[in-house]
């Protein structure tokens, strides 16, 4: 067990450093790290501190958030198909963010953007859990997710279409696919407080989720308060997904792929899976964002395109497996 965590942590650290060293500006490794830590004159410190560092930090924060929320939702719904992107939570968060930007709310008050995304995400999670029910079957979960995603995407596109700004319509791609390009420390500052709140809510859920694997009655008899747990899960997920989406758009499939790969390695215990998925999510987003910069660096490949290319086949595989299990 320790070995899994140690391996993930080392991988995460290595990718973080690589993320700082890869970019279109040709800066040597030693020179780059010196500029990052010591600062100084010239363009190199600016590139390292204002462009690459926020990007790498956001990749870690967003990966942690998506991996963690995916594992928590899957644990609670006892369904491996639950994932914030697939079931429309990211989409509704994006809707909240787009509304905030285009009504000028985000310009009037800096935290307007993440809080609007939080409100969108909250509505999304609450709807999904209400529609799918606490022990929702895969079918109702996916159907609810499709409905919510489609609705959120349509409303997002509507807001962008109606904007008087000629650039707005192009941004549909960003909000559907997500990207970390050219984010700044300001975005780190916007997302971090909300994410920390969400992490603090989701990580302690492990014990309750472990008990829940024995069934609701057993969990209740062990002192787990299911309604309270559901509330914490909904709000926590909305916090982390809302904050992530507000600054980087809807990045899908991370919360699906990571818990799926790590589950066998941690002995299928939800409490351990929460921590492992958080680290694994950071690894996946860091790796995907590195790949985006190495493959076709000039075309601004969207991060979400890459995670979807990895995630969608796995999703098909999971559906196929689920179908076989149905009577």
């Amino acid at each position: 067990m320790i070995r899994v965590f140690a391996a993930l942590a080392i991988l995460c650290a290595a990718l973080f450093i690589a993320a700082l060293l890869v970019g279109p500006a040709q800066i040597g490794a030693i020179e780059g790290l010196r500029a990052l830590i010591l600062g100084g004159e010239g363009p190199a410190p600016l590139v390292m501190q204002e462009i690459r560092l926020p990007r790498a930090l956001l990749a870690v924060m967003i990966g942690l958030s998506l991996g963690l929320s995916g594992a928590a939702m899957q644990g609670y719904l006892r369904n491996p198909l639950a994932e914030p992107g697939l079931i429309g939570v990211s989409g509704s968060a994006a809707l909240g963010a787009v509304v905030a930007i285009h009504t000028g709310f985000s310009a009037a008050w800096a935290y307007g953007l993440p809080l609007s995304a939080l409100a969108g995400a909250l509505a999304g999670v609450a709807l999904v859990i209400a529609l799918a029910g606490p022990r929702g079957s895969s079918l109702t979960l996916i159907l609810a997710g499709i409905a919510i995603s489609a609705m959120a995407a349509a409303l997002t596109s509507l807001v962008l279409n109606l904007s008087s700004n000629p650039f707005a319509a192009n941004e549909i791609v960003f909000w559907m696919m997500g990207s970390l390009a050219d984010r700044s420390m300001m975005h780190v500052g916007l997302a971090l407080p909300l994410m920390v709140v969400g992490w603090a809510m989701l990580l302690p859920l492990g014990r309750g989720l472990d008990a829940l694997t024995l069934g609701e009655d057993a969990a209740a008899s062990m002192g787990v308060r299911l309604t309270r747990m559901r509330l914490v899960l909904v709000v926590g997920t909305a916090c982390v997904v809302g904050a992530a989406t507000a600054v980087a758009g809807a990045i899908g499939f991370v919360g699906l792929v990571v818990p799926h790969i790590l589950r066998p390695l941690v002995g299928a215990r939800p409490s351990r899976l929460l921590w492992a998925s958080a680290l694994g999510g950071a690894v996946m987003v860091l790796a995907a964002d590195l790949a985006v910069r190495l493959i076709l660096p000039e075309r601004d490949l969207k991060l979400g395109v890459l995670t979807a290319l990895v995630g969608a086949p796995l999703f098909l595989h999971l559906i196929y497996k689920t179908r076989r299990e149905l009577p």
Partner: peptide
């Protein structure tokens, strides 16, 4: 243009500001 967009946000990036 009028109306905020994130496309134009890059022009307010701290590095561009500097």
């Amino acid at each position: 243009y009028s109306g905020e967009t994130r496309s134009e946000a890059i022009l307010d990036h701290p590095a561009v500001e500097l």
